[in-house]
Design a protein around this nucleic acid. Structure first.
Length: 305
DNA sequence: TGGTAATGAGCAA
DNA sequence: TGCTCCTTACCAC
């Protein structure tokens, strides 16, 4: 998916364009029909993200909750008062994160285009619209439901107020591999397969090491680095994790698939740091784990165990 | 035209 | 651990 940085961008986009507006909410596909009716015609009052969950709160105290899953995406469009049309969510090509090339002609905007057959939800304000497709979760929650959901999520590195202690505690309490704990949304919210792989590489940490054996200083480094990397993702709209010295002459804004990452999707290619053909892809908990067996060797016994 | 993988996660067994 | 759901793009045929 769309990892936490994409969801944060969606929340910002809704904050800029929809909060304060009365919205027409519909479900062209029909699979969100009842939920849409609960908030249709209500004024949006707050937009926020927690990890990979997006929340849009309405004046009637109900909240639309969306999780994009692996393939979900939002498409936006509108008139000149609507901030830059774009789509945010699942990429359409490896390395491509978001597109702003839309068919939406801002100058000629009168009303939204006909929705696709798969459009789960459409929200329309005076100046623009948002279409959702492919989400794994799209529902309306009461305040208690929002609280219950958020209580199950770990701290979010993109939240400036977040306290990382629960993440450190979760690591201290388990012998699961650190590479698995980083993907556990109850331990830390918003990290997906790319930030997992890239932050472990940057920390030179073996992904298979039991979390409770990872030094406290390394855990603090992992938290801080994810804060940094995810904020870059929010700013750029794409995940760029390479340091400038590892993509010589190429600015982050133009670091596409050739230069954006260290290990993600780079198995079988030379490692940017050790220079050797040591990046592998393996299965960890049903997801693909990319890592450099030299740079992240650490305690090799941990992996054999 | 069909198979497959993709930044996810809940569920049954 | 493996199955399921959601959608799209790309690739081989």
């Amino acid at each position: 998916m769309p990892e936490g940085h994409s969801v944060r961008r969606v929340a910002i986009k809704f904050g800029d364009n929809f909060v304060g507006e009365t919205l027409a909410v519909s479900s062209p596909q029909g699979r969100f029909g009842r939920g849409a009716a609960l908030v249709d015609g209500e004024r949006a009052v707050r937009s926020y993200a927690h990890g990979k969950h997006f929340f849009l709160e309405f004046e009637n105290k109900l909240t639309m909750n969306v999780h994009l899953g692996m393939y979900g995406s939002w498409t936006f469009g509108g008139d000149e008062q609507f901030i830059q049309a774009s789509s945010i969510g699942a990429p359409r090509r490896i390395g491509e994160q978001e597109s702003g090339d839309g068919e939406d002609d801002a100058a000629g905007y009168l009303e939204p285009p006909a929705p696709r057959a798969t459009t789960r939800v459409r929200l329309v304000s005076r100046h623009g619209y948002a279409d959702l497709v492919g989400a794994t979760i799209c529902r309306v929650l009461e305040p208690a439901g929002v609280a219950a959901l958020r209580s199950q999520l770990g701290p979010d590195p993109l939240d400036p107020e977040a306290d990382p202690e629960p993440f450190y505690d979760a690591c201290a309490r388990t012998s699961r591999p650190i590479g698995a704990v980083l993907m556990d949304q109850k331990a830390i919210a918003g990290i997906g397969n790319i930030f997992r792989a890239e932050s472990l590489f940057r920390a030179a940490q073996n992904p298979y090491a039991p979390a409770r054996h990872v030094p406290a200083e390394t855990l603090r480094m992992l938290w801080r680095d994810n804060v940094t990397l995810m904020n870059i993702g929010v700013e750029l709209g794409r995940i760029v994790t390479t340091a400038p010295e590892h993509r010589p002459g190429i600015p982050a804004q133009r670091a596409w698939r050739e230069h954006a990452n260290y290990v993600y999707l780079r198995h079988g290619r030379d490692c940017r740091v050790c220079g050797r053909d040591t990046i592998v892809v393996e299965d960890l908990g049903g997801r693909k784990l990319y890592w450099c067996t030299v740079c992240q060797a650490g305690d090799d016994a941990a992996r054999a165990a």
